[in-house]
Design a protein around this nucleic acid. Sequence first.
DNA 1: CAGTTATGAATGACCATTCACTCTTATATC
DNA 2: GATATAAGAGTGAATGGTCATTCATAACTG
Lengths: 196, 196
Amino acid sequence: MPIKKGEKYIQILDAAVKEFAENGYHRTQVARIAKEAGVADGTIYLYFESKEDILVSLFTEKMGDFVDKLKQKLANVNGFREELRTLITHHLEVLGANPAQAMVTQIELRQIDPWINQGISGPLKSYFKVIEEVIRSGQDEGLVCKSLDVRLARKMLFGALDEVVTCWVMTDKKYELVSLADPIFEILESAFCKNK
Amino acid sequence: MPIKKGEKYIQILDAAVKEFAENGYHRTQVARIAKEAGVADGTIYLYFESKEDILVSLFTEKMGDFVDKLKQKLANVNGFREELRTLITHHLEVLGANPAQAMVTQIELRQIDPWINQGISGPLKSYFKVIEEVIRSGQDEGLVCKSLDVRLARKMLFGALDEVVTCWVMTDKKYELVSLADPIFEILESAFCKNK
DNA sequence: CAGTTATGAATGACCATTCACTCTTATATC
DNA sequence: GATATAAGAGTGAATGGTCATTCATAACTG
């Protein structure tokens, strides 16, 4: 029964993001995380069940935040177009501002492991739900074709954003990720909206 | 200097796809691959440098094929719309027909490892080039806005397809992947084409 | 019988996890 | 207020299991 909170908990999590981003999940030893966090190896196991648990906690922690903040922003905005723009911008802003975190969520988390996926699917699904709601609201407004398969559209939208972020992470991050928000918005808008 | 060809080479590769798809790269032992392939553990090292080398070879081998076949199909087709449709269909058809391979390329390959990425980037880049050429041909035809950022469009197109395949792989593969070709085509076409 | 190909038991490196111990802080007793 | 007792948090060296890889040996082949 690890204590999933407190100062050390955060320290370890932060150290883990850094190490995972730098060396990849499988290549970073727990001992390295401990060193980076300034705690003893054993201390980690007071806060986490296992190495995998660190990875999962990392994701759920960050993803929970991500979705919460997005929902707040969406509440202050009206109409499908602005919602879509907000969604895209948020995605790029947050990941653009946290390259290490982006690295972890984009790459390290992708390894299939029934256990890891279980831990991840919750928060990720809630993000998917938000995306689908935005698209559906576009349909209600009459801007998006009613016959559009919302699920499929969500997958494509998410996939598109995801790949853009992945490319950015994998290269040297020379450009500002957010600067792509506008062109992406243009493309996705015309993808979903009926031709006027 | 492993011999990168021959019957056993293929056998090992096939066994590896199966095992990686089933258990994931890190969870499959070389010994399992050997057993599945019907060869001795040591034999693997006559054909491959290392376990990683198996993964990379797998990808380059399959991806080379993938791009070659796609190019052939594209040569027999005229006009941006049909090219785009061909591209999408090919992507879904090939991965839909080889779930295990899809699993490996979609998931297992994503783990960052400078070495692995190096091995992968070649064949993947050649696929990207094909995609970009198709989009550019659409611009030449006047169907796609000249101001569209081809690179960005490629990333989004690839990401969209990729995510659709990933979702399919992760679930129980209940539906035919190719059946999504039409709706995806509709969406991507209107994403890129000027409103008529 | 030389050369090539294949074998699989043995090796050794690696690293997540544990646990016997220390250090700190809080509470109780006189 | 001084001392004793207990609990919790933290430590890091030692453990043990897991494989990738090697290599001495065998089995083909021409």
